[in-house]
Simulated scan of single mutants.
Amino acid sequence: MSLSTSVERVELPFEFPFTIARGTTTSAENVVVRIEDDDGRVGIGGAAPSPHYGETVDTVEAVLPELLAIVEDIGDPHQLARIERRMRETVRQNPAARASVSIALHDLVARRLDVPLYRYWGLDPTESVRTSYSIGIDDTETMREKVETATDRGFEVLKIKVGTGRDEEIVRTIREAAPDATIRVDANEAWPPKEAVRTIDRIADYDIEFVEQPVPAENPEGLRYVYEHSPIPIAADESLETVVDVPQIADRCDIAVLKLMKCGGLREARRIIETAHAHGLEVMCGCMYESNASIAAAAQLAPLLDYADLDGSLLLDDDPYEGVPMPAGRIGLQPLERNGSGVLEPQTRRG
């Protein structure tokens, strides 16, 4: 067997400018990997690098030739453990680059076996969870309008970005605009520990499901302080990158947040889920600014999750790749009559 590979950079404009505590973004660039076997089956994987973790589209493109050379050298996509081990040995960092190859390989393997990825893993698609829909920081009235648009589209779970001097006002306004919605709050490391506790105390009356990453990741004792004093469950995102971080956050949060682009691939993602559950933590899978070239694979993990935040493609003005349907936030693994991750390339959609 032989495998051929290719790489493409894609520009992804957002439907609306998106702001978090660290800044505003109007579009994202992803790198898409294709791995094709002798029979013409193609696996698709996307890299959505984050400068916050020291990775850019340029660094992804720089290391992908080395990673794909490993794939071509081994030549068997079913050798997932061997390929991913060699990738880690070759490129220690660049998790988004490694994730794109991992996703493409898993997509190809499941296509070769004529099964959806969730079935390859032995998962029950009826146990899927809903994804949240994120509302970026803006002036309060604009955030209200975005929430009303989201609820009109049927989204029942909203994730509100905070980290401003008016966080209580924002949360109060969102709750008024969406009285029946499930609301999560994400500070993206914006608060010092004591400020985090004061703010959480003020917003606790607005029926918040959980607060994500209230303090900087480099302050683990601050995270512990917030966790011990918060009346609302705490989720750790930036504090968790790979499975080795799980024991370090187990007594500092209620929910572990994994992302394929942080951890480096689907095998590592499953290790994080199993390890977090073993430590008594709930698990959410989140995403970066991603197309369905990677979101589709993350959606296949939904039956293993307690929560999902997989709205990366939903925030785009147009995604050239079609993935797992998510009408009103429902992750539609069933009936999804596609094998692999469920992603379709643009030419396949046109055909």
Rank of each mutant, 00 (worst) to 15 (best):
E290R: 08
E189V: 00
R144L: 14
Y225S: 11
F14N: 14
D205Q: 14
P335W: 09
E228A: 10
R349A: 12
L344N: 04
D37S: 02
I203S: 03
V162W: 08
I331Y: 06
D309K: 15
E145L: 12
V115M: 05
R252Q: 13
P303N: 02
V10G: 02
L158V: 08
E145P: 00
G45Y: 10
R92C: 04
P325L: 00
R130M: 15
L223V: 09
A187I: 06
D254K: 08
S2T: 09
E168R: 15
A293L: 10
G43I: 10
C287Q: 11
E337C: 07
E168K: 12
I70P: 01
R252V: 10
V171E: 00
E169M: 12
C285E: 10
N94C: 13
G154Q: 13
A204K: 07
L305D: 06
R175Y: 09
D58R: 11
R350K: 12
Q300P: 09
E61P: 06
I137D: 03
V115A: 04
I20E: 10
Y133L: 13
L260S: 06
D205G: 08
R98P: 01
E189C: 03
R112I: 08
S132N: 15
S4A: 10
S4P: 02
R88K: 11
R198S: 14
L223D: 02
G46F: 03
R98N: 03
H229C: 03
E61V: 06
G323P: 02
A81H: 12
E8S: 11
T199D: 00
S50A: 14
G264N: 04
R349K: 14
L260V: 11
G43A: 10
A104E: 07
V109S: 04
W191F: 02
A110P: 07
Y206C: 03
S50K: 12
L108S: 02
D58E: 13
D306W: 08
T59W: 06
A62P: 09
H277M: 08
N94G: 04
D124M: 12
P303K: 01
A296G: 01
A217C: 05
C263W: 08
E148R: 15
G165V: 05
G265N: 11
V226A: 02
A28T: 13
G286W: 07
N188K: 10
Y307A: 00
R338C: 01
E212Q: 13
M143Q: 11
I74H: 09
G54I: 02
G54Y: 10
D76K: 12
T142C: 03
I295W: 03
P49H: 13
P346F: 07
V244L: 14
E168P: 10
A328L: 07
D318I: 10
C287I: 12
A47C: 14
V343P: 08
L266E: 00
G136E: 15
D319T: 07
D306P: 03
G286P: 07
V71C: 01
Y118C: 13
M288V: 06
R130H: 15
R184Y: 01
L314V: 08
R330Q: 14
P51T: 12
L68H: 08
R172I: 01
I35D: 00
Q248M: 08
L304Y: 04
W191G: 00
V211M: 05
T173P: 08
T25H: 15
G222D: 10
P17L: 07
L123K: 07
D186Q: 15
P116C: 05
R271G: 05
R144I: 15
S27E: 14
I135R: 03
R202F: 04
Q248P: 00
